[in-house]
């Protein structure tokens, strides 16, 4: 008989594994309050809230944050449109080459980010396109499509094809059917996909280093601080805030798709 209770060893191994995944993140939270500003001394000699106000008054942090939010918002919007179109085409009909379409959508995250980054950079160079806000968006939207696509395809698969036929049977043309039947049925999946795409773009650094030129998104700003630390406590605070901010869309996406389809982890 298969027993219904886990052995102690398994419980410890599973618990230790989860702890391994979470303790380093918790550590960041503690460091955000340390009074030590020259080194990464542990345990912190004292705790203070001072660095939050220092960070608050740093214009470079705000600029980076604002750029990241704008890039993520626009990339998400583009990815929502492209991903939904792709998912609709792939799930509705069997056509020649649908495997190729899936592959094309997945490729930008299946290949290491550095390859996407360098490809785009050398293409921009070849085409004489100067780096700008839009070159960042171009890269981000490309790898965000897959997250929306995964969520939308899963939902389309669960939405019975006869719903669409029923709508047309009752007098609705293609556009009315989209507005009154398809959209309400895939809305939560799109919202979840959009949130994940936003989180993905907000966090992206590898492709961005190749497509950003002189501009700094928040991850690029952090990378600078990691390579050449200027004010460590500010980095600590920003790191903590970034963790908290990315948790929100993940929790949101989880609750939106709970019990229906899973949040596609491989989207990342």
């Amino acid at each position: 008989m298969h027993s219904d209770r886990a052995s102690l060893g398994l419980k410890i191994a599973a618990g230790a594994g989860l702890a391994f995944m979470h303790l380093p993140l918790l550590l960041i939270f503690i460091y955000a309050f340390t009074t030590e500003d020259k080194s990464y001394q542990w345990p912190p000699p004292g705790l203070t809230l001072k660095w939050f106000s220092v960070t608050w008054s740093r214009p470079d942090v705000w600029e980076a944050l604002s750029l990241s939010v704008r890039v993520a918002a626009i990339s998400t919007a583009i990815a929502l449109v492209l991903g939904t179109l792709c998912a609709a085409a792939v799930s509705r009909t069997k056509f020649f080459g649908r495997e190729a379409v899936s592959l094309m959508v997945i490729l930008p995250i299946a290949l290491p980010g550095i390859i996407t980054g360098i490809s785009l950079r050398s293409a921009f160079n070849l085409a004489d396109i100067p780096f700008s806000f839009w070159t960042i968006v171009l890269g981000h939207a490309t790898f965000c499509v897959v997250v929306v696509y995964n969520n939308a395809v899963a939902r389309f698969r669960r939405t019975s094809g006869s719903l669409i036929e029923a709508s047309m049977d009752l007098g609705a043309d293609s556009f009315q059917t989209f507005r009154h039947v398809i959209l309400p049925n895939i809305a939560t999946a799109l919202l979840a996909g959009g949130m994940l795409a936003f989180a993905l773009s907000f966090d992206e650094v590898i492709v961005t280093t190749f497509t950003a030129g002189q501009q700094q998104t928040l991850p690029i700003w952090m990378l600078e601080e990691l390579v050449r630390p200027r004010q460590r406590p500010v980095t600590n605070v920003v790191a903590m805030v970034v963790v908290l901010v990315t948790f929100l869309p993940i929790l949101g996406a989880y609750y939106l798709t709970r019990g229906t389809d899973t949040v596609a982890g491989q989207g990342k």
């Binding site: 006869s162 036929e165 007098g171």
Partner: peptide, 26 residues
């Protein structure tokens, strides 16, 4: 022509009244 589907194909996001009245709404 109208159809009664094998799996009924009721719209899950609408209540019974809006399902029935769908054709009139359109």
């Amino acid at each position: 022509v109208n159809t009664v589907f094998q799996d009924y194909a009721l719209f899950p996001h609408l209540n019974v009244r809006d399902n029935v009245a769908y054709g009139l709404m359109i």
